[in-house]
């Protein structure tokens, strides 16, 4: 067998994006103030705030306000959500799928379970679809291949099956319990 047809080398070809001229607009960007439920104030650029569908529609309804109260949102997850959205805006201006994927992956890896789970209701309330996708997938990845007991404690759920019922369920789909990761 000749090696030239049998195992051709794969080369990668990347289309180079046309270099973007540095057109950082000099005009001052409008700031919007967000107020968390624990009364912390966040000043963010308008473009970032508009990533939050909830905030956006708040402004459409009452354009004259300058502070948006967020009664369901505490400061810590909010600051993390803002951090995420700031980065996403950079990717919008300069699309780079690989870099975006890398950033999104790093963003969730460095967070604790609690941080992730705390951010989900915030992303949900603010209707940030991209972030919600990233977070849901990240949580799914963390509970994947874990024991049932681990998943229960992760979500704070009580077992409402009797021991017999649970044993019967485990027999029904025994293959699904093979190869559990350590908690």
């Amino acid at each position: 067998m000749s090696s030239s047809t049998d195992s051709p080398t794969l080369t990668t070809e990347t289309t180079q994006l046309s270099p973007q001229p540095d057109t950082e607009t000099a005009k001052p960007t409008k700031k919007i103030t967000l107020k968390s439920s624990d009364n912390q104030i966040f000043e963010v650029e308008e473009s970032v705030a508009m990533e939050f569908a909830t905030v956006k529609s708040f402004f459409e309804d009452s354009p004259s306000t300058d502070t948006v109260p967020l009664p369901n949102v505490t400061a810590k997850p909010l600051s993390q959500v803002i951090e995420f959205c700031k980065e996403q805006i950079k990717f919008k201006a300069n699309p780079d799928e690989a870099q975006k994927k890398k950033y999104n992956a790093e963003f969730v890896t460095e967070k604790s379970d609690k941080d992730l789970v705390d951010m989900i209701p915030v992303a949900n309330y603010l209707e940030i679809k991209d972030l919600l996708d990233v977070l849901n997938q990240a949580v799914a990845d963390r509970i994947e291949n874990k024991s049932v007991e681990y998943v229960r404690s992760f979500f704070g759920i009580d077992n409402d099956f009797t021991a017999e019922e649970e044993a019967a369920l485990r027999r029904e789909h025994a293959w699904a319990y093979e190869g559990v990761d350590e908690d």
């Binding site: 919600l132 849901n136 949580v139 994947e144 369920l169 789909h173 293959w175």
Partner: peptide
């Protein structure tokens, strides 16, 4: 939404959670 992103095997395992 989280469960909808689990591979089938782990979704079936998650049936025993509650």
């Amino acid at each position: 939404q989280v469960l909808a992103r689990l591979p089938v095997k782990y979704l079936f395992r998650a049936k025993t959670v509650c």
